[in-house]
Computed example of a mutant assay.
Amino acid sequence: MDSIDAAQAYTRHYILTLHKPGPGGPRWATASGTVTPAAGATRDGVFKWILNGIIEDNPDMRGGTVLFFSLEPNRL
């Protein structure tokens, strides 16, 4: 097995999808990527960081419903 550094070992892959009904029909926003949480970080803290990022990029999604959230180790 190849050696990896501690940060790489702790890197997580995430997917978060929001849905929000609107007058023109439903809207969705999905974010996916990787994050390496700081020591002591919590799942809730990472979730809120990702959610806030989606809302910053798509302000009209504020108040949307989370349809899907996954936070898993990135290493196979």
Score class of each variant (00 low, 15 high):
S32I: 00
D5F: 07
D5T: 09
P59V: 08
L51V: 01
F68L: 10
I55V: 15
L67D: 14
A9F: 04
Y10L: 13
N58K: 15
L51E: 14
R27C: 04
G63I: 06
T65Q: 13
E56A: 15
P26F: 03
P21N: 13
T65P: 00
L76W: 04
F69K: 04
V46L: 11
H19M: 13
N52H: 12
P23E: 13
I54M: 05
D2E: 10
S32Y: 08
K20T: 04
F69D: 03
G40I: 04
M61A: 11
P59D: 13
G24D: 13
Q8L: 09
V35N: 07
G33W: 04
R62Q: 10
A31F: 03
I54Q: 04
V46G: 10
A38V: 09
E72H: 01
I54Y: 08
A6K: 10
T17R: 14
I4Y: 14
T65H: 10
S3I: 10
G64W: 06
H19C: 07
F69E: 02
A29G: 05
I15Q: 12
W28Q: 12
N52D: 15
H13P: 00
L51P: 01
N58S: 14
S32D: 12
D5W: 03
I50L: 06
D57C: 02
E72F: 00
G45C: 05
K48Y: 03
N58Q: 15
I15G: 03
K48D: 13
I50S: 01
L51F: 15
H19I: 08
Y14W: 06
I50C: 03
A38D: 09
F68C: 05
A29T: 01
E72I: 05
A39H: 11
A39R: 14
G45H: 05
G25E: 13
L76T: 13
L16R: 06
R43Y: 01
V66W: 00
Y14M: 09
G45W: 04
I54P: 02
S70Q: 10
L51C: 01
F68S: 14
K48S: 09
R43N: 07
G33P: 04
A9V: 04
A39C: 02
P21F: 03
H13L: 08
R12I: 00
L18K: 08
H19G: 10
N52V: 01
